[in-house]
Write a protein that binds this DNA or RNA. Structure first.
Lengths: 113, 113
DNA sequence: AAACGTAGTATCGAAAAATATACCTTAAGC
DNA sequence: GCTTAAGGTATATTTTTCGATACTACGTTT
């Protein structure tokens, strides 16, 4: 690890209020259409959902399949490339779980941060 | 990985324009005093540096050692606990490097995102 | 011909985050 | 008794992100 470091790249595609949730939904669920995603994520607006999905699509993490039907149907799924990211997500998750316990140890219940 | 997922925790302590850089400086350099950090990070303001250091300190990633001298001296370093985070940072970094190459492949040089 | 359903886009504004600027404190040195 | 340097705090302003609302397109149903 030197002065030129790119772990921010991984952050970039993960940050934002909604990206983690969207990713989780798609990872657990396989393929989902827009409306399913929206229903499964309370309080997300169409605008946010679209925006975040487009960003994930740009990064080749999410695939967008449009069916030329009326009413329209658009299905989202994790790409093969995106799947290759799951070990990292898992590692981050494990660290996070561990860290919450660590904070607990340090500060007790005073407020769960 | 299920519906209850905490990889956001790892994100939390890493996000922000400056935290990654600060972490890197301290990881590469060992112990640094405030002014050294500030000099080594172009354009960061005192306020930002202080704020980010305090957050890292709260999470037990950074240690702050105050010397009661005049003029004051305060040295920052990565805690032992913080060191245990480096494999994760490394993994994120590796993924990031790889991902930049992937984007290159997909979109060419059109603009480096 | 009006209403419906799906998957959006467009516009505006509020809230949160980042940045800039000025000021404070301490004791030693001039 | 003013200046200097370290390590800040306080306050204001700019920038970015997020959200609320309204609108579009198009076939199908009523």
């Amino acid at each position: 690890m030197n002065t030129y470091c790119k772990f921010e790249t991984a952050l970039d595609i993960l940050i934002g209020k909604w990206k983690p949730v969207i990713l989780l939904r798609l990872l657990n669920h396989g393929t989902m259409r827009f409306s399913e995603l929206q229903k499964s994520i309370p309080d997300i607006t169409k605008k946010m959902l679209t925006q975040q999905l487009r960003e994930l699509e740009y990064h080749d993490i999410v695939h967008r399949e449009v069916y030329k039907e009326i009413p329209p149907r658009v299905e989202y799924s994790i790409t093969d490339y995106g799947q290759r990211m799951t070990p990292l997500l898992q590692a981050m998750n494990d660290w996070g779980v561990q860290h919450i316990a660590h904070l607990q140890e340090l500060y007790g219940d005073e407020q769960a941060e």
